[in-house]
């Protein structure tokens, strides 16, 4: 069990909502690491989810490898390609999550390109994901305007749907997007693609305050968040920090990727405000 101990949750209550309300009650913040499922294999991904849970992460984004991830930089693109080259498929990811679900208290959010969801069929994808033990979805290329059916399907399955707010999103639109989200809003920290960065954009803190003004939905911030200081900076205002490329980069360079990831996860959790 991880530190939050939600194993007794009734299946119909949103695990994600419970995680954030528990954190808020304790004035605590969430680390949300991202892993590409199947990079380099699904056994490793399951190990990483358990390691993240132990290290004190609250939610994990489980990335479904896609052949053409246009929002992703070289690190995640290469990670997804390794997963696909290793033969991972959607069913395999569901099966892996089903195996890990009862071993972790983490919220598990599926990060999936809409190309994959469309091919499976929205209803089928959502119900299979729910059945496997996922708690929520991020469809990074689904617009607010087109998100109605996905939100309805997620609601019906008792899962959350998080849409993205970008730096280019006007604040009135951000408010509408937040209202269409359940669980948390995914706040994109910088224009551009995913990838580790040395520094956060200077205007980010003001932006987070502005978003805080227009919504009560928890804010999770990603794109470029790379080290404990970044985690501290964003969680000083927002509810969660999402770290993806920096973790993958570190594991790629390591002899013992799992130990390296565990260490880095602990460092990142240590950064939480």
């Amino acid at each position: 069990m991880g530190r939050l101990g939600f194993s007794t949750l009734s299946p119909m209550k949103h695990r994600i909502d419970a995680i954030f309300s528990d954190l808020q009650a304790r004035d605590a913040k969430a680390l949300m690491p991202f892993f590409t499922a199947g990079d380099p294999d699904l056994t490793t991904t399951a190990d990483l989810l358990r390691a993240a849970d132990t290290a004190g992460a609250a939610v994990c984004e489980v990335g479904f490898a896609f052949s053409d991830p246009v929002a992703d930089g070289p690190t995640i693109e290469a990670s997804m390609q390794r997963a696909l080259d290793g033969g991972v498929d959607v069913q395999g990811v569901f099966d892996m999550v089903r195996g890990v679900r009862d071993q972790v208290s983490l919220g598990l959010v599926a990060m999936v390109s809409y190309s994959i969801v469309h091919r499976w069929g929205l209803e089928r994808f959502v119900s299979e994901a729910a059945d496997a033990g996922f708690d929520g979805f991020i469809f990074p290329d689904l617009s607010l305007e087109a998100s109605g059916p996905a939100r309805a399907a997620a609601d019906a399955a008792g899962l959350t749907l998080s849409l993205l707010v970008a730096p280019t999103t006007p604040i009135e639109r951000a408010k509408k997007i937040a209202a269409a989200c359940s669980g948390f809003v995914y706040v994109v920290a910088r224009s551009g693609i995913t990838g580790a960065r040395a520094a956060l954009p200077p205007e980010l803190t003001d932006r987070l305050h502005a978003l805080r003004e227009v919504t009560d939905v928890p804010l999770a911030v990603g794109f470029g968040v790379s080290k404990p200081e970044h985690v501290r900076d964003v969680t000083t205002v927002a509810d969660a920090a999402i770290v993806a490329s920096a973790l993958i980069d570190r594991m790629q360079g390591a002899d013992q990727p799992l130990d390296t990831a565990t260490l880095m996860l602990k460092e990142l959790v240590g950064g939480l405000a």
């Binding site: 246009v70 929002a71 809409y114 190309s115 990074p140 290329d141 689904l142 617009s143 607010l144 305007e145 087109a146 849409l163 993205l164 707010v165 970008a166 730096p167 280019t168 999103t169 006007p170 639109r173 997007i177 994109v188 224009s191 551009g192």
Partner: peptide, 20 residues
């Protein structure tokens, strides 16, 4: 108005590009 030709078309893009 949403860019659909019958059942096809639309706009499946990251929010970052919505404004552009």
């Amino acid at each position: 108005a949403a860019g659909y030709y019958g059942a096809f078309g639309g706009s499946y893009i990251p929010e970052t590009l919505h404004h552009a």
